[in-house]
Design a protein around this nucleic acid. Structure first.
Length: 831
RNA sequence: GCUGGGGUGGUGGAAUGGUAUACACGAAGGACUUAAGAUCCUUUGGGGAUAAAACCUCGUGCGAGUUCGACUCUCGCCCCCAGCACCA
């Protein structure tokens, strides 16, 4: 006996839509609950079972919360700008605006077929001009706060996608999307000063409930290290070299300095005077290496002496200056003081090139020096007046001393780089900036100097232009419709070729000016979308402040681990900027963040077309129904764990739903008025378990408990009142909304099961009347006793000691101690 | 190397100090059926013991420790997964 999901599921989906069951109500008296899933990218691949896992499980949470009386907001939208959409358009030869629209229509149909309780009235789309108008507006706020600047920098260039990539989008030297090795290029780019918020992005994690590894990964990525910058004078040269170190305590152990190839370039003239052409050769070769090459050559450090010396500002020692490719230009100052005795990399380099070592930290027990560098803690030696100090104190004292002598200062550095924000692509939000030559020329020399120093200008055809913002009333800067949206070979945006669009009047001086032709990365629209849900149709503001105050922060945000150092970090950054502008409440957007595990193919491999192991959710829904799909997504394993899709497991949950259907037929025909005690107890335990497990991400065990309950019925010979069966249907409703609704109405109910309050369990019924007491001897189970709850120790001891299986262990021994846990266990310790 | 998570039956997993293996899959046997499928029932960690049971014993990556009692806590080690990685 089975039910026809193809008949009942669409029926209820239509019904719910008509009834508008799942709206989040602004300013409702009820307690609010904002539950958010990462909005999907409407690609040609449609939604997959990975989306299903996140959406179906969080949908169960949203439904449960509604039944608990919360005013739930569970919205969805489309993150539709970006490279995949553009690549898909290029592949199919259809304009991205058309494919995007089609993909949204299809993905929406899918989401609806899963019976998800989204508030569709708040649906948004990042490519909608009414939406990206505000993305552009927000960019202007960042610009006005000096958090956006344009600078010529080396960028990660993907030769296949013909675009630059943020560091976060480069994985192991390759393009995150297409796997092509990334090249280095100098290019003028918009950057957002996320580094200015680095400390707060770390610090404020303390105030939110993120899963341990998510916070850890963000902190890791930001990579804060505290130390000092120290100046070394170059001998026979007027300049000095500033190095960054986290170990000022090893300062006396520095035996040479090393510059990054980029930094060394500044001294080429000086080196040429010393007649060392091989230095220039080395630098040039090092600079031409791609990121990937540099990474592959990791193990073997190379370098060459620059042929000049610097002076230790405290001891006056002459330190040779080298250039080496293991020193990174992008971190610290691009120059280091090498302390080979206490840094393994410096040690390896010193050994290879026969440079001197000087031990300044001693630890008799741990140090393996001079076999290898000693990086641990110990007592300072060979360090003048600082001898005898321990690490922390030494760092403090030496830094203070350097500061006093004006030879150094405390400094903090981060691995995090400013966010490269421009892309040379068509399918993105145009950056609302205009470059004006006339405005530049009208600047005073002082203003020009300031603009140059603040990277607040752009060079076009070799001439400097002033940066002028598009006025707010002219937003949005609409993305023009073009025939040719393919990226250009030279890496300029296709927009640059649309003369009519590029050439504009300057909003300040009205002279001929040029638009910025770069567009924003797809991380722009997603950095604030959760705010727009709160007021999606507002054409005066990005969102009304009162609505923001009512709904924020997001109570529960679930999404993929792959966004931890991208979207999640970016959107926290934007939110903090908005908080500083007093446009949003609080300082953190998401109170709680969780992450679902990846769904692998049935073969345990990552799903991919080439492996032919892709599970199409549409087929699962068609064959077994949305409820089965939802239930399996939740039941397949622990929510946060990577797990392989098991087609047999899908059958298993469908069997469970069939048993529910069958039980319903029996219950409704029996028409019992009272349930047996045993069934009542199970039911109340079930309410408690499902409620708790669902809110703690333990969807799999919540379902296991429901299965147990129904299995109990299947054994037969039970008595279950219709009213209690209705309670079960309410418990089932968040997970299998269609079947629950169908059966609920089958019992004559008129209103939706999803509008019912969550059943309250009776604590008295949770407690067992009779309990199983485990009898142990020396901690090993030797017997069980079925006794009324609350039986006292004396009685239990007597009964337990009387058991044959227990007595036999007492022979020749004596009971030294008895451990009694009421209603649970008794343990005889015998000697 | 650093950071975080993990290691339990044939498989996915359950149990966060108290009966190890809930729930599901698979497998074996049985009922129904001309048959297959579906469905239902029974069994299902290893070893020993028994006519059958009761029962005994080993068992949660490895080794130690704490405890009346450890999958769970502590220490050391091995392995797997994820992220970062010449970050000074």
């Amino acid at each position: 006996m089975s039910f026809d999901h193809q008949k009942i599921e669409p029926k209820w989906q239509k019904h719910w839509e008509k009834e508008n069951l799942y709206r989040g109500i602004n300013f409702s008296e009820k307690k609010k609950q904002y539950i958010l899933i990462e909005f999907p990218y409407p690609s040609g691949e449609r939604l997959h079972v990975g989306h299903g896992r996140s959406y179906c499980c969080l949908d169960a949470v949203a439904r449960l919360r509604r039944m608990q009386g919360y005013n739930v907001l569970f919205p969805i939208g489309w993150d539709a700008f970006g490279l995949p959409a553009e690549n898909y358009a290029i592949k199919t030869g259809i304009h991205p605006s058309i494919t995007t629209k089609e993909n949204i229509t299809n993905s929406k149909k899918q989401a609806q077929s899963w019976g998800l309780s989204f508030d569709w009235e708040r649906e948004i789309n990042t490519t909608d001009p009414d939406y990206y108008k505000w993305t552009q507006w927000l960019f202007l706020q960042l610009y006005k706060k000096d958090l956006a600047y344009k600078k010529e920098i080396p960028v990660n260039w993907c030769p296949k996608d013909k675009t630059n990539l943020a560091d976060e989008e480069v994985v192991a030297g390759k393009c995150e999307r297409c796997g092509t090795p990334v090249e280095r290029r100098m290019q003028s780019q918009w950057l957002l000063k996320i580094t200015a918020y680095a400390d707060r992005l770390i610090e404020d994690l303390k105030s939110v409930d993120y899963r341990e590894d998510i916070s850890a990964q963000q902190i890791n990525w930001i990579g804060r290290s505290a130390g000092a910058q120290i100046k070394f004078k170059i001998l026979d040269h007027k300049s000095e070299i500033t190095v960054f170190t986290t170990r000022p305590d090893t300062f006396y152990g520095a035996t040479f300095l090393v510059l990054s190839p980029e930094k060394a370039r500044d001294y080429l003239d000086f080196v040429a005077g010393n007649k060392r052409p091989e230095v220039a050769d080395y630098i040039e070769k090092a600079l031409n290496k791609s990121e990937l090459q540099r990474q592959e050559e990791l193990k073997e450090k190379t370098g060459i002496s620059m042929g000049f010396f610097a002076q230790n500002p405290l001891t006056g020692e002459k330190l040779p200056v080298w250039v080496a490719d293991f020193v990174l230009s992008g971190y610290g100052t691009g120059a280091i003081m090498a302390v080979p005795a206490h840094d393994q990399r410096d040690f390896d380099f010193a050994k290879k090139y026969n440079l001197p070592l000087k031990e300044v930290v001693k630890n008799e027990k741990e140090s393996m020096f001079p076999k290898e560098a000693f990086e641990g803690e110990g007592t300072l030696v060979n360090s003048g007046q600082f001898d005898g100090l321990q690490k922390e104190e030494a760092i403090d004292k030496i830094t203070q001393f350097l500061e006093k002598k004006k030879m150094g200062e405390r400094a903090v550095d981060y691995k995090l780089r400013d966010w490269v924000f421009s892309r040379q692509h068509y399918w993105g939000e145009p950056i609302p900036i205009i470059f004006c030559r006339n405005c530049w020329e009208e600047k005073s020399e002082k203003q020009k100097k300031e603009a140059r120093e603040g990277y607040d200008f752009s060079k076009i055809d070799g001439k400097e232009h002033a940066v002028v913002t598009v006025s707010e009333e002219d937003l949005p800067v609409a993305l023009p419709f073009v025939e040719n949206y393919k990226p250009t070979e030279i890496g300029a945006s296709p927009l640059a070729e649309i003369k009519k669009w590029v050439e504009v009047r300057c909003p300040i001086c009205d002279s001929q000016a040029r638009r910025e032709t770069d567009t924003m990365p797809n991380w722009a629209g997603s950095s604030w979308y959760f705010l727009r849900y709160l007021d999606p149709k507002n054409d005066k503001q990005f969102a009304d402040r009162k609505k923001l105050d009512y709904w924020l922060p997001v109570d529960w945000y679930n999404g993929g681990m792959e966004h931890t150092t991208l979207h999640l970090l970016y959107s926290r950054f934007w939110y903090k900027v908005l908080a500083d502008l007093k446009l949003v409440p609080g300082v953190e957007p998401y109170a709680k963040r969780t992450s679902h595990g990846v769904v692998l193919g049935p073969d345990g491999q990552k799903m991919s077309k080439s492996r032919e192991n892709v599970i199409n959710p549409d087929e699962v829904v068609a064959e077994f129904g949305a409820d089965t799909f939802r239930l399996y997504e939740a039941f397949m394993g622990p929510f946060e764990q990577t797990i392989a899709w098991d087609p047999k497991g899908v059958l298993g949950v469908r069997r469970f739903l069939d048993r529910v259907w069958k039980a319903h037929q029996t219950v409704s025909s029996q028409k019992s008025v009272v349930s047996s005690q045993e069934i009542q107890r199970s039911l109340h335990r079930l309410i408690k378990k499902v409620e708790e497990d669902t809110l703690h991400l333990k969807f799999n065990t919540a379902i296991a408990e429901m299965m147990k309950f129904v299995n109990q019925l299947a054994i037969g010979n039970y008595q279950l009142a219709i009213e209690d069966w209705k309670v079960f249907l309410q418990v089932l409703a968040p997970y299998a909304p269609h079947l629950a609704e169908e059966l609920w109405h089958g019992l004559g109910e008129r209103d939706s099961v999803h509008r019912q309050p969550w059943p309250k369990y009776d604590p008295k019924l949770i407690v067992e009347e009779s309990v199983t007491i485990v009898v142990q001897v020396n901690g090993k189970m030797r017997g069980k006793l079925e006794l009324p709850a609350g039986t006292r120790e004396a009685a239990v001891t007597e009964l337990a000691a009387g058991l044959d299986s227990v007595k036999s262990h007492f022979y020749g021994k004596r009971v030294a101690k008895t451990v009694f846990i009421p209603d649970n266990l008794i343990n005889f310790v015998i000697l």
